[in-house]
Write a protein that binds this DNA or RNA. Structure first.
Lengths: 189, 189, 189, 189
DNA sequence: TATGAATGAGGCTTCATTCAT
DNA sequence: AATGAATGAAGCCTCATTCAT
């Protein structure tokens, strides 16, 4: 039933008809409504579910990082994220864009943008990096969002490139970029 | 009339009713339809218009960069973009998300994601940087998208931070991050 | 299970969901459908049941009236009806309104308005009254319906009065009204 | 458009589809929704309109009664009501049954049973009768509801009689019944 | 025999679009 | 050229009914 998240990925969240979802899921409309109050809740549930998966993966990375260097954890973190992105390209591109969901009536902070949890994991990772002295502390508060932006750029790149290729190939470049930037080493003429 | 782009920013592109736009614009629905074939064209026109502004600003930067260093152009580029972002926070956050637009019938490449032009400007900037040897050439093809991702992170950061502050304050950190990354300089034990 | 007739009284016949009835009755929907062909039959059965009770009560009155005066029977009749009304205020107010039942496909005279039997008892009572000369015969055919209307007015009065009070208190006024009307005795200048 | 109240009369309030109403009214569904928020408001509006007509008629009676006897006003009152009943048999039979309307969420006393106004007119009439000494004062508070019940009995009678006939024929019998009751004059052996 | 999840026809409502004024 | 009431296709959701367990 969850596999109907593909619909969202294909048609967009707001452009998908409940009936199509149910059809793809192989059940009747009514059945969906036996489990979800209304369209909004169905959407929220799908989002939740997908997000939870990623968060779980990230937590496992964090878990198995005990006793290993920050750089190793960072690499694993990137790998996990890129892999997840790979598997859910289209859907993730939507998860990243919580803003376009329906207006969200006032006082309904139920699901944030759907990225709160992911963002939190990134904050933790950054904090450890700073604590261990492997990340500059000056602009540290910006790093989580920059990390998020960088990962999002994978989707952008995917879009603007003729030869998409596996996201995992971005692991090394992204690690390198995040740590040392795009600037050429100066002073080595 | 164009000022009704605020509607999109507030309610999302798909969540905005034509009638509301016309009301906010102070005209009747029929009037809108005298100028735009249908909803899709109205949306496209608004997008176009906003994008054109940014592109124009970026081109001016590029223009006035003749005879100045790449770093100066880069800084101007960032400044122009952040300023634009500042002024159209909400709307830009939507422009950045071309994917959620209507289903897009097959064979209808009319308006791309709305970022094509911006992306092209970034490519040009990166190319110059590489040509002048101030940017690493190894992963150069990724830089435009990373630049885009970085700028998007401004919106993310805005969302997850208690003290938003002017986007322009991000100029220095972002320049620094893009050029040298987040990693602490090593080899200085 | 029958006690779920309260639902009808509370929500109206057409406004009550089968599932709610079954829930209130403490059984599953399927169980109801094991006993009643469909919704319509369930409704008919409930109506029938309630009506049967009243008819039974009225028949007992008629029974025990043998050898007593018409006025005594009339009083008992009123008492029985008002008592019944008292106990099933809400439901009775619906029974009285057979017209709002489902559209009734043509050629489906299955359950009449639910009051046919009651009306018949009233006709009998009126006939006896006329036969014994205690009721005017001029407009006799109207009396059954007037009797019904008078009893219904108990429900109306209940609705429009601040101090509802027991229906039984209406026994004397109603008897008086039915027999002598509302007009002040004339000819006593 | 108002003529679509016939639908209610024919199919019942809850059994009528909005689309049918619009069809009968010769307009599109959307058009109805341009004038009424939703189904409930449409129903309420129709009720209101019909009730207003009757109330208006009753007020005219009351108006023209100045300087005439109570009995004359009473007769006019009956005539007006019966005439109205005649013209809107089916619909009125529904107006009389406000109770079956949708559950009415708590705290929504917007339209009462639709008979409040009519009831008020009856109270006024009765008060005058009592004041002028032509009505007994003992059970006066019950008379308005009895009057209502009596009129309703016209609908009942209509239902249970083979030869319906014009309601106006009930004028004399009802006047007589209301004033002197059904009992045969006693003491005239 | 009781259960209650699944079903899907059908009703209500929205809103992009038209067109007579 | 501007208007905005009318339109009706299309989507959301309900709920009577079925049937495998």
């Amino acid at each position: 039933m969850e596999a109907a998240e593909e619909m969202f990925a294909e048609q967009g969240v707001l452009g998908t008809r409940i009936e199509d979802i149910s059809k793809r899921a192989g059940v009747a409309v009514g059945t969906l409504y036996n489990y979800f109050e209304d369209r909004e809740q169905l959407v929220a549930a799908l989002m939740s579910r997908r997000r939870a998966r990623l968060v779980k993966a990230l937590d496992e990375v964090s878990e198995s990082a005990r006793g290993r260097t920050w750089h190793e954890e960072f690499e694993d973190f990137l790998r996990a994220t890129l892999t997840h992105l790979e598997r859910h390209r289209r859907f993730f591109s939507i998860l990243v864009q919580g803003e376009l969901l329906p207006p969200r009536r006032a006082g309904d902070e139920t699901h944030g943008s759907g990225l709160d949890d992911v963002y939190a994991r990134m904050e933790r990772l950054v904090r450890r990096g700073v604590a261990e002295g492997v990340l500059k502390s000056t602009f540290a508060p910006l790093y989580p969002s920059l990390l998020l932006g960088m990962l999002r750029s994978a989707l952008v790149h995917d879009r603007y490139t003729d030869m998409p290729g596996p996201f995992l190939a971005l692991l090394e470049p992204y690690r390198d970029f995040f740590l040392t930037g795009a600037g050429a080493p100066r002073g080595n003429p």
